[in-house]
């Protein structure tokens, strides 16, 4: 019993981090209707950048987010503007999917050249400290990561719900044509939306680098998890994504604790197949459009 509850706590904390990563994915899908296969690679890239900043200048990994996020934002905007926007309209959905795949491979290639393929992780002094609450271990980094995720998600929700830009994004998500007719510059919204999605990867990357060890090839692992979460949450629903991320975090932690850590990776794939079998639209995917 103790073990189970400990696994649930761990799962919820991990799920918070997944929620952050997957929300960027969901945002990009909502705005562009493109499954961004590069999201995992963006997270790993951000993890490397944070790791380098920490190693070279001793900047606290949580603070590196402030430096890495703008860079990732620019990168995301550039990817959309230079690679996705010029694609031929009639084939755009299939081609953009493959272009994001190519971007993922390109990032992996660059990281392999620069950092080699050894595993590394970000190790600030407090990385292994934990509090004991009523007999249960709560890792400080994981808790801080979860809080950071929640803060970022909150900021994202405010941005989407309260600002002019957010309204333009939501309009584009609901009906791109109508939004354009009403004067939303859909091209710019798409670029900024992609940039915003990439910027969330910055926060996720710093956290990921502290909790897990990673190498340039880790993005395959990560992207399969993120995609499973996004499908479970119903493509394009931000709330659904967060709930799905927490659920998957708990499920995989439980499988890891009670069965074997090896099989916890498979829980994602099994859940993905089960969802597609039972509810192809995902848990909250009844409304594919306009769910942001």
């Amino acid at each position: 019993m103790h073990e189970t509850i400990q696994a649930v706590i761990l799962g919820l904390l991990t799920g918070g981090v997944y929620a952050l990563m997957a929300s960027g994915q969901t945002l990009i899908f909502g705005v562009l209707k493109v499954v961004n296969l590069a999201q995992g690679a963006l997270v790993i890239l951000a993890a490397y950048l944070s790791s380098s900043l920490f190693d070279a200048f001793g900047i606290d990994p949580f603070l590196t987010v402030l430096l890495v996020a703008p860079a990732m934002f620019l990168l995301g905007t550039a990817v959309q503007w230079c690679l996705l926007r010029p694609l031929h309209r009639s084939d755009a959905p299939q081609l953009s999917l493959l272009v994001t795949f190519a971007v993922a491979l390109g990032i992996e290639g660059v990281l392999t050249l620069v950092y080699k393929s050894d595993y590394r992780s970000i190790q600030p002094g407090y990385v292994n400290r934990s509090w004991t609450v009523a007999g249960y271990q709560v890792g400080e980094v994981r808790l801080a990561a979860c809080l950071l995720s929640l803060a970022t998600l909150g900021a994202l929700a405010l941005l989407l719900g309260r600002t002019r830009f957010g309204r333009a994004v939501r309009a584009t998500v609901q009906n791109p044509t109508a939004a354009r007719l009403l004067g939303v510059e859909s091209g710019r919204v798409a670029a900024l939306g992609f940039g915003l999605g990439a910027a969330t990867a910055a926060a996720a990357g710093a956290v990921y680098g502290m909790v897990y060890s990673f190498n340039p090839g880790s993005h395959y692992d990560l992207i399969s998890r993120l995609l499973s979460i996004v499908v479970l949450g119903g493509l394009g629903s931000l709330g659904g994504t967060v709930i799905a991320a927490l659920a998957m975090g708990v499920v995989s932690a439980l499988v890891g604790a009670l069965v074997s850590p090896v099989w916890s990776d498979f829980s994602f794939f099994v859940v993905l197949l089960a969802v597609l079998l039972v509810r192809p639209g995902g848990l909250f995917g009844a409304r594919l459009r306009g769910a942001l």
Binding site: V35, L37, P93, Q94, L97, F101, Y220, D221, I223, S224, L227, S228, V230, V231, L235, V262, D265, F266, F268, F269, L272, L273, L276, L277, P280
Partner: peptide, 23 residues
Amino acid sequence: IAMRTRADVFAIVTITLLFVAQT
């Protein structure tokens, strides 16, 4: 299972399958 839905989801399932097969 993968082809019940759209091409996006098919790509998602197949890339995940790749990782699962390797693991």
